[in-house]
Write a protein that binds this DNA or RNA. Structure first.
Lengths: 325, 325
DNA sequence: TTGTAAGCGTTATCAT
DNA sequence: ATGATAACGCTTACAA
């Protein structure tokens, strides 16, 4: 491995002159510059970022901590992050917590050991112990971003989609299609999140009626356990709060000879390949996953550079109309 | 930041004693151990991996270089890699080349600067310049794995799925379903790869007949430009060498009132969520993406540890039977 | 414009 | 069983 000293000797200049020249901290004589350039080329020098990091006590590594990367939403967000970090010459570490068998504390210990420049948490649930954990990180002066989940403001920046708006947009769309008897279908959605959707519903609906709420539990058969209930309640518009579930419900409806849109409109929360592939193609609410990643990366960079940043970023969902609603 | 020196002073031992104790290179007196443990706890010491890396001139960072991460196959492979690396306490860098606007040389410069322990290339095409690039990496003694594409052996380990086997498996399956007039439908597949599929076909077929080859070009309309040709040729089994294309072709066939399986069977190369979601669900050849990632990571670790490793790993595809074939 | 020397946090060598 | 010292490659006062 060729070091600064090596090229210094080869070029007959001191290491520090070369260092300052390479980091454009000084102007050197034309002659010196030529000698340095030649030595670098001849010996094939590349700088050692690890040594630099030790000297400066900072790295250019940002970590994304995510449940799993093999998921269309998370990989889309991560790609957005990667795009911004790459542009600013930061490197991207990925830690999949569902995969790693690491406790939160161990992950964070890892972050400190490696002098991570900043951490982006994506999609991790905000239970009490986890909040504590993040508070610790903040106390160690590691910049943090918490993305894609709701959490009360706690001193570190938050990013999430506007679920009330998403709900309102969806319900308004269903109303526009003359669907009046709406059901929200979900799976494992915590009550505090469900309440955002109800709020969106009431913002969209002029009168005081309430939507039907249907929770799908593990092992339930959509055809036998859900569709009859929808029919009994004369539901004509279903807002499914999970894209994959929307696909499966659509399949079950089609199989039951219910016409999608004409009989029952199906609207999906979340917009990816999945909605496009479904037959019929699903009208969906796009939660802006890539944009969420992009903004998360921008905010972590602002923090690293000690610049101002938005404490809370709420992303505006939009509707993508296809066939199902 | 608390350093070894700090806890050394606090515990009244030398820094090197603590270092050796922490790395379990020596046994210390019970009393010393207690003092060290106390100091670590009281001052909140965590080791500095960057300093360690500089000292040892090696890191625990492995880079995955991939066209894009927001892709079901690549993210699945990456997840497999992450799983193995995590287990062995290596960190995972992601570099998306489609996203980063970095030239190959720049990416590799980055690898050297950061003292990357090993590089896994996924899904990058094996043009001549790229082969040269990898040769360079190998010369710098950076362990390399080249995964998910065919390449002639060049001194660094290769991993790819057995496409001949995949083809043979698929064609045999179509034959089993009494489909005799087979078409291979593809998009942008280079000739040398197509030849593997033809080889698989001829291995599966007893007699000497040849399959129809249909290449889909950008902007083509499947309904108008492709289906008529399939019908003219009395095709009753289509092997689509791209999962997304298989979905779209299936949709077009359904729309043309052609019964999937009964009239024309559709078989997809590549198995992911996409095939499951399609209506009807697609029978597909699984190329073992996660396993490819796992094995890639294992091989890079073997190389890093200077252990023996397989130069070429060929993954066995298998068929997942669903509805379409 | 260029050089000297110290130091970032850790560990290997050589002593004691 | 423990310590002093130098070194990994780079940067930065300070000096010349």
């Amino acid at each position: 491995m060729t070091t600064l000293k090596d090229i210094a000797k080869h070029a007959n200049v001191s290491a520090c002159t070369i260092s300052r020249y390479l980091n454009s901290n000084i102007v050197v004589k034309k002659e010196t510059e030529a000698k340095i350039q030649l030595a670098i080329k001849e010996l094939g020098y590349v700088t050692n970022v690890v040594a630099k990091s030790l000297k400066h006590m900072e790295t250019f590594n940002v970590a994304v901590i995510v449940p799993k990367i093999n998921n269309l939403y998370y990989s889309e967000m991560t790609s957005g992050i990667s795009q911004i970090l790459g542009k600013h010459h930061y490197n991207l570490y990925i830690y999949e917590v569902d995969n790693l068998n690491l406790s939160e504390d161990e992950v964070l210990q890892l972050m400190r050991e490696n002098m991570i420049a900043g951490i982006i948490f994506i999609g991790l649930f905000s239970d009490v112990s986890f909040k504590e954990t993040i508070r610790n990180v903040v106390e160690w002066n590691i910049p943090v971003v918490y993305a894609n989940r709701y959490m009360d403001y706690n001193g570190f920046p938050l990013l999430y989609p506007d679920l009330v708006k998403a709900s309102k947009l969806g319900v308004e769309h269903l109303f526009l299609k003359d669907k009046r008897r709406i059901a929200f279908v979900h799976k494992n959605l915590p009550d505090h999140l469900l309440s955002y959707f109800l709020e969106g519903y009431s913002q969209a609906s002029k009168d005081e009626n309430k939507p039907m709420i249907m929770e799908i539990e593990e092992g339930m058969d959509l055809s036998k356990d859900c569709i009859p209930k929808l029919l009994q309640n004369n539901i004509d518009g279903v807002f499914v709060l999970n894209e994959m579930l929307a696909v499966n419900l659509t399949k079950a409806l089609v199989q039951a000879d219910i016409r999608i849109l004409e009989d029952i409109a199906v609207l999906s929360l979340g917009n990816s390949l999945i909605s496009e592939i479904s037959t019929p193609e699903l009208t969906s609410i796009d939660l802006q996953n890539r944009e969420l990643g992009i903004r998360s990366a921008e905010i972590i960079l602002s923090q690293i550079r000690k610049e101002a940043f938005e404490p809370i970023t709420v992303l505006e969902p939009f509707i993508v109309e296809r066939r199902s609603a």
